[in-house]
Design a protein around this nucleic acid. Structure first.
Lengths: 233, 233
DNA sequence: ATTGGCATAAAGTCTAGACAAAACAGGACA
DNA sequence: TGTCCTGTTTTGTCTAGACTTTATGCCAAT
């Protein structure tokens, strides 16, 4: 008789996953309760609880008090990929990172931006355009707007040596981020900056950051043609 | 004197985050150990442990046995967005989902695919082209390859009524996924299928799925022009 | 039938204590 | 000097038990 050694929450996770996959616990059904499983595996309920909690976090099951734990019909897989600082992204590919400020001004806040960030009528913004290079090639064009109401000290910063993203991450805490990925044809100006032909398909990210409901910054990032973002889950 | 009631791991998380943000515990430094914190908050070490474990999962701190818990210099934020089934994505936008199979064949396995999936020389594949509509508009063009070695019963399936993704999710378990996002100009054929002009910028996703090292399927998904993928974190 | 309330079942959390595992530091020894 | 061993510290995990919270289903009163 093989000794059972000790059972970890990871073992239970793996076992439960196996039962979900081979439909011992079919999709849509309720699996045994924590007490029962703890009995079966000969461990404490807390151990089962942790395993199940993680499976729920990972989207395989739904748990409700009193109702029990139900196998999801179609597991919600969620990609969980890291958003690296652009400097790190470039340097980790082996290339040298270089940054250039193209333009810095404080225009009248455009209406689309005010609407997008729910800014008040008198909110001032700082507008920056920058290029990030990998070696000698343009890698990303950044069109950035900073809410000076929320980040007044950005007005004192010239951003000639340090990119706004790097500066903001160091200086301004944030709590919420919205990312929007899309694709667009390069207009003439962007094409020239990135060194591609007009109409080339560009991968773009829009990024809005808040600190507890207060909008901090809006950035539109245009990547060079051919950029790929990969994530494993 | 206000009674402290009870302290939950969430309170501790929030408090720790506040201290990280306001630099009570500056980036790069070591924060107090679990025992010390448990003393300060008047709770059990397990409670502190859970709070800290979650903060570590979320990328704010690094924990190492013996070395202690260190505040990350630049917190690794990771986007965690759900990959919905395309039917759900379309229906939740209020439109009617419609599916059409364009082509189904079993060609000689192309070399690029064999290389990409690390397939053996004699592996057979099923090749499908499909369109997914939102109402009357093309939403996504799907170019799918299925490894018949790993999923032999796919050969019996005609895929005329049900899309391969929906079928695979129901029938074939998987353990690993790789997603690659990029952008490309529509070629003539794809443009016609999606009802856009040639050269339009398309958002594309490549998706490879494995079951424990065995490649299951490769899909290239071309979205209509203007598609946006948004995630909040 | 419909509503309201109550008992109960299940997950969620906390505690106090124990042992395990990793990683580092310092000493013994070749 | 370098290598190995051993002790110590800190996080990682587990246990057994208790209490809390939330949903649900049932029963009674409208």
């Amino acid at each position: 008789m093989i000794e059972a050694k000790k059972i970890s929450y990871q073992d239970i996770k793996a076992l439960a996953l196996k039962r979900i996959r081979n439909k011992t616990w079919p999709p849509g059904s309720i699996m045994p309760g924590e007490v029962e499983l703890a009995g079966e595996f000969g461990c404490a309920r807390a151990t089962v609880n942790r395993a199940m909690r993680e499976l729920a976090d990972e989207g395989f099951i739904d748990r409700k008090r009193k109702a029990g734990t139900r196998i999801k019909a179609s597991p919600t897989r969620h990609a969980k990929f890291t958003i690296p600082l652009i400097r790190d992204e470039i340097e980790s590919s082996g290339a040298t990172y270089r940054y250039a400020l193209i333009r810095r001004d404080t225009p009248k806040t455009p209406d689309w931006l005010r609407a997008r960030l729910a800014l008040s009528l008198q909110a001032d913004v700082l507008h920056l355009k920058c290029l990030h290079y990998a070696g000698s090639k343009p890698f990303q064009f950044e069109d950035r707007w900073i809410n000076l109401d929320a980040v007044p000290k950005a007005a004192q910063q010239n951003f000639e040596m340090t990119g706004p993203n790097e500066w903001l991450v160091q200086e301004v805490p944030f709590t919420d981020v919205e990312l929007t990925f899309s694709s667009m044809n390069a207009d003439l100006q962007t094409a020239e900056l990135l060194g591609v032909s007009e109409g080339a398909a560009l991968f773009t990210i829009e990024r809005i950051t808040w600190l507890e409901k207060r909008p901090i910054t809006f950035a539109k990032l245009y990547y060079f043609s051919g950029y790929q973002m990969t994530s494993r889950l």
